[in-house]
């Protein structure tokens, strides 16, 4: 069975370590916050100028002056900090943020990522994605393995305009987990019940399959 969005988020959450500062993108990455292991402390950074982001407010306690980068109303945790946008990207650019989790439209087997523009369609802008991928110490991309037409999103070369070059370290899809290596996408875990053959069939880029690929524990 391929993973659903919550299971992808849950698996990513296991990559978090005590003391990490983490930036979570919009979509599946946001769900990671719901699965942070209770025995570790992780501080969430939101690039509009907030460290120590808490959960959504209770109804009636929303504050128009307190939002995350997705423009959703949020809360502050004890010990949080507010700052301007230049300071926010200073901590991103200087690699103070330990992990960035974001979605993508395409990833290539050398770690290029395309996530912001489909030529000929409405272009909404890259927001902070180019800054995040250019500087992050560690980037995990989470996405569906194929697009809605069934085409692979793990490619030899991205066909869409790039967000960043050679920056992706790890990818988690509904079918498995992959490391970007000089030899291509290395399959490190497969989703429960998903065969290596299925992953090979749905991966267009170079795929390295070790002899013993473990089944993912969710």
């Amino acid at each position: 069975m391929a993973l659903d969005k919550n299971q992808i988020a849950k698996r990513i959450a296991r990559e978090l370590q005590d003391g990490y500062y983490v930036n979570l993108g919009i979509g599946i990455p946001t769900l990671v916050a719901n699965h942070i292991p209770p025995d570790i402390t992780v501080t969430l950074q939101s690039e509009n100028g907030l460290l120590g982001m808490g959960p959504f407010p209770f109804e009636g306690e929303e504050d128009a002056d307190l939002i995350n980068a997705g423009k959703q109303t949020v809360t502050l945790l004890p010990g949080s900090a507010i700052f301007d946008s230049a300071t926010s990207f200073a901590m991103i650019r200087a690699q103070k943020v330990n992990l960035t989790v974001l979605g993508a439209m395409e990833v290539s087997d050398n770690g290029d990522i395309a996530s912001w523009k489909i030529p000929g369609k409405m272009v909404k802008g890259m927001g902070g994605a180019m800054d995040l991928v250019a500087s992050a110490q560690n980037i995990i991309v989470c996405m569906m393995h194929t697009n809605k037409h069934g085409d692979s999103k793990l490619l030899k070369k991205c066909s869409l305009p790039l967000t960043g070059v050679g920056c992706v370290k790890r990818i988690i899809t509904d079918l498995g987990m992959f490391e970007v290596t000089p030899e291509g996408f290395k399959l490190t875990e497969r989703a429960p019940g998903v065969s290596v053959e299925e992953i090979q069939k749905k991966t267009e880029g170079r795929l390295v399959v070790p002899d013993d690929v473990k089944e993912m524990v969710i």
Binding site: V123, M126, G127, M130
Partner: peptide, 21 residues
């Protein structure tokens, strides 16, 4: 934007902030 009435320059957010600074 699509009709060409409006010119648009899209800039990465951190670059935009630092360029203002």
């Amino acid at each position: 934007m699509l009709s060409g009435e409006l010119e648009v320059d899209l800039v990465p957010q951190g670059n935009l902030a630092e360029r203002c600074r």
